[in-house]
Design a protein around this nucleic acid. Structure first.
Lengths: 225, 225
DNA sequence: AAATTAATTTAGGTATGACTAAAATCACTT
DNA sequence: AAGTGATTTTAGTCATACCTAAATTAATTT
């Protein structure tokens, strides 16, 4: 078994790799809230353990075994998030923080029990895919709500869970995964977006719209006014 | 918040205090699986934090605040044990090990949610009392099954959870908390005990009988044959 | 091509919580 | 009262994972 710290590094690397492609020392430092120098020495250790490859000044890349462990941690994290939401009614803006602690102490046996209790789910409360036990993960292809044009509609696929305030804000207008949305108008200069969620109309700030991902986008794209 | 290590020491001290009265360095060393010297230095630290008092070569005693924390950890532990058994169907011989890890990462919020989901329970799966949030704990007074005489009957109050094998053994004859038992005969020289559990008859080894505690003991005590 | 700035690494330290080996103290026995 | 053995403490180390400050390398500007 690996230390909690190692698990956190691997997960962070996996997530940065997915979001931005390249994984730099600084990016890790920021994501993990530790000094860059600390990242460098941990990278050295993980590299010795063959969990990642590292080219000096060039960033890191997970090896097969590194990715396998990262995905196990991600699976734990997301299963726990869903379990907490479903079984214990924890609001979706709080599940992430709890899961950050639980993910490191979940045994395989309990993972299986939670998985079964939830009916082998594929998405966590924010819409992120839950990797299967063998490390398969199916990403929906989606675009940020911020990139949609007036007249287009689609379905919420995923919402970033990095900020509880954002989640509460988004939750207030019902933008949960699987919800249908239609873009009514978009203000220019990255202005707010007006949209329809069911019968209700909402105005969403441009920054928040960066963090809501929409799939199944259809409709004639109109002009940004 | 205190470290996991500190929480473990406080819980161990609490438990030894309850079982044997005096809490020696060696007893702690053995219970925690660390060297006696390590215990000595941790005692020094806990003493500085006013979580316990220590007389050199004489053992330790929890202070009020030390006991409060110990009982919080015990509450976490036992609530989790019960939750795992009830909500996820974890067998009673496995809940202890899982709870050892979970107890340190349970937030107060989740504690409340589990507590509510379980209907504010008072006993864990082994029959041990779950301290209330304010640190009240109600111990049943009970005697070891090993001390019962033929003809006596009573109700299983509690079973020691220190050994999964013991729990499986005891579980096989249905000696769960709240089960009625009647002692049929007792062999001399700490020999096996024959008992009735419901309609079934079982023979229990003397050592195991040390770890099963019976309450509400009644009936004419006969001779040990 | 040199200079500036940003990113990364090296060097040297710290706190935690373990360890071993040796010394001190206590509790008994004779 | 002295000696023996068990218990406890002291002293000195070690690994993990973090830190700051300084040095190095890379990338960008002039």
């Amino acid at each position: 078994m690996y230390t909690e710290s190692i698990e956190n590094y691997l997960k962070a690397i996996y997530e940065i790799q997915k979001e931005r492609g390249k994984v730099s020392t600084n990016a890790l430092s920021e994501k993990l809230g530790v000094a860059p120098a600390s990242v460098t020495s941990m990278i050295k250790k993980l590299s010795e353990k063959k969990l990642l490859t590292h080219k000096r000044y060039q960033g890191v890349k997970l090896t097969q075994s590194g990715q396998k462990i990262a995905l196990e941690v991600v699976r734990h994290h997301r299963l726990i998030e869903l379990y907490l939401a479903e079984a214990l009614g924890v609001p979706w803006d709080q599940v992430h923080e709890e899961a950050e602690k639980w993910e490191h102490v979940l045994s395989e046996d309990l993972e299986d029990r939670m998985d079964a209790a939830l009916g082998h789910p594929t998405r966590d409360p924010h819409g992120s895919p839950i990797p299967s036990r063998d490390g398969t993960i199916i990403e929906l292809d989606s675009i940020p709500l911020a990139d949609m044009r007036p007249g287009q509609h689609g379905v919420v696929a995923e919402v970033s869970d990095h900020d509880p305030n954002l989640l509460r804000y988004i939750g207030k207008m019902g933008l949960y995964p699987k919800t249908r949305v239609k873009v009514v108008s978009v203000e220019p200069f990255s202005g707010p977006i007006t949209l329809k969620v069911g019968d209700a109309s909402h105005v969403l700030g441009a920054e928040a719209a960066q963090y809501v991902f929409i799939t199944d986008v259809k409709g004639n794209p109109g002009e940004v006014i």
